[in-house]
């Protein structure tokens, strides 16, 4: 078995990957109240689009930059042209949305398998991040440290944007009182579609970032969307900081269960989900908030 510290770092690394997904989902869920199971499809889309770019150009960095653009466009289109018109016709209950996006999640997996086959793919680790570094007498892969750094950087950047900028203030206002934001002359449907696209792009970004350490395969988004939902519920819907801490809890629970209690790995995070739903449905972080 690997030493404790390695497990700890692996846990943080998984947590940060899940965070990249959860933060987009919590924005979409918290802001627009859209139960978006298709979030996993955007993870898959980003990974495969990144794979295509990496194969064509040989550059991981271009893949990381361009890969998220496809899920951005797809997310924007889904919200602006499909989900918003449905909501206007009164078809936006959680069940309506869950069924629709559930369909999209599996349709995407099927379509990807049709185009790319069922093989497992990978994007090669860029030269800059290859190898290992010495850390407290052990060696740890640089790329995994890179994932941790990226997760923290994006978390900090998002908190700054949401807390300190006008766009962030407008988003908070939109969560508080959507109607009043439109009554100030703001096209909230456009804003929401952009946020939906941005959240989807973050999922796609996570797909590319994970490619050098995890495999790319057609149904990769299905399992992770469940984990992501656990994070969003544990963190509190729409709670950005909560989703960061919840990512750590879920990522650590998963990693340590795998390492020390392998028989519990399959259900550890779901026990966490059930316990939160029973005892603190508003999430562990934040006193008030939407109840799942």
């Amino acid at each position: 078995m690997q030493p404790f510290l390695i497990q700890l770092l692996n846990g943080v690394q998984l947590s940060m990957l899940v965070f990249l997904l959860a933060v987009g989902l919590t924005l979409i869920f918290g802001l627009m109240n859209i139960l978006n199971l298709a979030h996993g499809a955007f993870f898959t889309m980003g990974a495969y689009f990144g794979l295509v770019v990496a194969n064509d150009t040989g550059s991981f960095w271009l893949a990381l930059l361009i890969g998220p653009l496809l899920p951005f466009a797809a997310g924007f289109v889904l919200q602006f042209f499909v989900l918003h018109p449905l909501a206007q016709r009164g078809r936006s209950t959680h069940l309506d949305l869950a069924l629709l996006t559930f369909g999209l999640l599996f349709a995407t997996a099927g379509a990807v398998e049709h185009v790319f086959g069922s093989a497992f793919h990978s994007i090669v680790t860029p030269d800059l991040l290859k190898g290992r570094v010495g850390l407290l007498g052990m060696e740890y892969p640089i790329y995994r440290l890179f994932i941790i750094a990226v997760g923290i950087a994006i978390g900090v950047a998002l908190v700054l944007v949401i807390d300190r900028t006008l766009v962030g203030a407008t988003l908070r206002a939109g969560v508080d009182n959507r109607e009043m934001v439109t009554a100030l002359g703001i096209n909230i449907n456009m804003l929401f579609a952009l946020v939906f696209g941005f959240g989807s792009a973050l999922a796609g970004f996570a797909g590319v970032v994970s490619a050098p350490v995890m495999s790319i395969y057609s149904s990769m988004g299905i399992g992770i969307v469940v984990t992501t939902f656990v994070v969003v519920v544990v963190g509190g819907l729409g709670n950005l900081k909560g989703s960061f801490y919840a990512s750590l809890i879920v990522g650590m629970t998963d990693t340590f269960a795998q390492a020390y209690l392998p028989e519990a790995e399959l259900f550890a995070i779901y026990i966490l989900l059930i316990a939160v739903m029973i005892f603190r449905p508003q999430g562990l972080f934040g006193a008030v908030g939407r109840v799942a």
């Binding site: 203030a169 908070r172 009043m180 934001v181 100030l184």
Partner: peptide, 23 residues
């Protein structure tokens, strides 16, 4: 509006800045 439509999580200054930016 009747309920005043103040955003609980937005500062006074930001309320005005949002309206300013939107016009």
């Amino acid at each position: 509006p009747e309920d005043r439509g103040i955003f609980p999580t937005v500062t006074v200054e930001e309320h005005l800045a949002i309206a300013y930016g939107a016009s």
